[in-house]
């Protein structure tokens, strides 16, 4: 099992890269034959990634959530998996490359630095923590996808406004679809982050003796949650369209990513386990 884990660890970035290349080729080529096969390839990649995550959990007797490189591989999986579900639901097939590249980046970093960890703190084997982390990860992958579609929306918006009718204009879906995809993935991310925060708020104080409400990760998650709450409320209440909603998505995402980096890499916190 260990050798399979090691093999998949090398293989996964390559698979994501190939999936990215296939999606890119399909995006650029006007009459590509990859439309169906690229989707099958992504499915195979996700299946192997699931096997990898399962094997790690079994072999090292804990879910792969105990350090940032385990989190990265989980995030890589979550982003592409969410995209895959979105593609199946909407049949919008032209935008995969912009999402898969995120998974490729996370998985590559993870594959380079990840180690075989058997010894971890007992608290990290707790089931509630598993749900807390997985829902937070899925939530953040929702925000990532929302941000990517937000950027694509702005790029296409600018292209149309400036009468540029190149490949972006031809191959991207309509602005309305991009906006819907961005908002829907934001909504899903928001619900999942809310669950993660709720579990955290209820369970964390009992599980950690050194729990502090002023913890940077807690504060930053709260800020992110507030930004998204404001965006969603305005969109639903006032029917805002386009750039303004995207602004919330991108701001939320920027704050989320920068706070994750800052709190994980710089600040000292009870919330860090590595």
């Amino acid at each position: 099992m260990l050798s399979t884990i090691h093999l998949l660890n090398i293989l996964l970035p390559i698979l994501y890269l190939v999936a990215f290349v296939a999606y890119t080729y399909d995006f650029i080529g006007e009459a590509s034959n990859f439309t169906n096969s690229k989707r099958i390839f992504l499915f195979v990649t996700l299946f192997l990634h699931t096997v990898y995550l399962l094997f790690r959990t079994i072999e090292f007797t804990h879910a792969p959530i105990t350090n940032k490189f385990e989190i990265f591989t989980l995030l890589a999986f979550a982003v592409s998996f969410s995209y895959f579900i979105l593609e199946l639901m909407t049949d919008v097939r032209g935008t995969g490359l912009f999402i898969i590249v995120v998974s490729f980046a996370f998985q590559t970093v993870s594959s380079i630095f990840i180690q075989d960890l058997v010894e971890v703190k007992d608290v990290l084997r707790n089931g509630l923590l598993g749900i807390h982390v997985v829902s937070a990860i899925m939530g953040y992958s929702g925000f990532t996808i929302s941000a990517v579609y937000g950027i694509l929306f702005i790029v296409l918006y600018k292209n149309i406004r400036n009468s540029k009718f190149g490949i972006v204009f031809k191959r991207l879906p309509s602005l309305e679809i991009l906006e819907t995809l961005s908002f829907k993935s934001l909504l899903i991310g928001y619900v999942l982050l809310t669950i993660a925060i709720l579990i955290g708020v209820v369970w964390l104080p009992t599980a950690f003796p050194d729990f502090k409400w002023s913890d940077p990760k807690l504060i930053s998650s709260g800020v992110v949650w507030l930004i998204y709450t404001a965006g969603i409320t305005i969109k639903l209440k006032d029917g805002w369209y386009g750039k303004r909603v995207i602004f919330f998505s991108l701001t939320g995402f920027t704050v989320a990513i920068s706070s994750m980096i800052l709190s994980n890499f710089l600040a000292e916190s009870f919330h860090s386990f590595y």
Binding site: L156, I160, F165, L172, P173, S174, L175, E176, I177
Partner: peptide, 8 residues
């Protein structure tokens, strides 16, 4: 162009 702005 209209079709690139509105979906349906």
């Amino acid at each position: 162009i209209i079709e690139k702005i509105f979906a349906n």
